[in-house]
Simulated scan of single mutants.
Amino acid sequence: MRTLSQAELLDLWERGHALHPIDRGLLAIHAAFPETQGESVADWPLGQRNRALAQWRCASFGARLRGWTACRQCAQALEFELDAHAITQTPVATGAQAVESGGAAFRLPTSRDLARIAAIDDADEAARRLVEQCWLDEAGTPGAWSDAQVEAIGEALARADPLAEIVLDFDCPACGESFQESLDLPAFVWAEMEAQARRLLWEIHTLASAYGWSEAAILALNASRRARYLEMVRT
Rank of each mutant, 00 (worst) to 15 (best):
R72G: 15
A96Y: 08
E132P: 04
W135G: 06
E155V: 06
A123E: 13
G62F: 06
G140N: 13
T88K: 08
F80K: 04
F61N: 01
D147V: 07
E151S: 14
D83Y: 13
Q149C: 02
A84W: 04
G103S: 08
F106L: 08
A148S: 13
D147R: 11
V92Y: 04
A96M: 09
E81W: 03
Q89R: 15
P142K: 12
A59H: 05
V167F: 00
A148V: 12
G103Q: 13
G154S: 05
A96P: 02
A105I: 00
V150K: 04
I120N: 11
G95F: 03
D122M: 02
C134P: 01
A96T: 13
A84Y: 02
A93K: 03
G143M: 00
A148G: 13
D147Q: 12
G140V: 03
A98N: 11
S101P: 02
D161C: 12
A144R: 13
A75H: 10
V150L: 10
W135D: 12
S111V: 01
D122K: 02
H85Q: 15
E81R: 07
E81L: 04
E81D: 11
V150N: 03
I153R: 06
D122T: 08
T69I: 10
L157D: 07
Q149N: 10
V167M: 06
F61M: 06
L136E: 12
P142A: 12
H85T: 05
R72V: 13
I117C: 13
T69R: 07
R112E: 14
R159D: 08
R107G: 11
D124C: 08
A96H: 11
R64S: 12
L82Y: 04
Q89S: 11
P109H: 08
P162A: 00
A98V: 09
A158W: 00
W145P: 00
E81M: 09
E79I: 00
L136C: 06
A119N: 11
G103V: 04
A59D: 12
R66V: 13
L157G: 01
T90P: 09
A59F: 02
C74S: 14
A156S: 14
T69Q: 09
G62N: 07
D113F: 04
S60R: 01
Q76M: 11
A118C: 06
R72F: 00
R128I: 02
S146D: 11
A158E: 06
A156P: 03
I117V: 15
D83Q: 08
A164D: 07
C71L: 07
A158H: 01
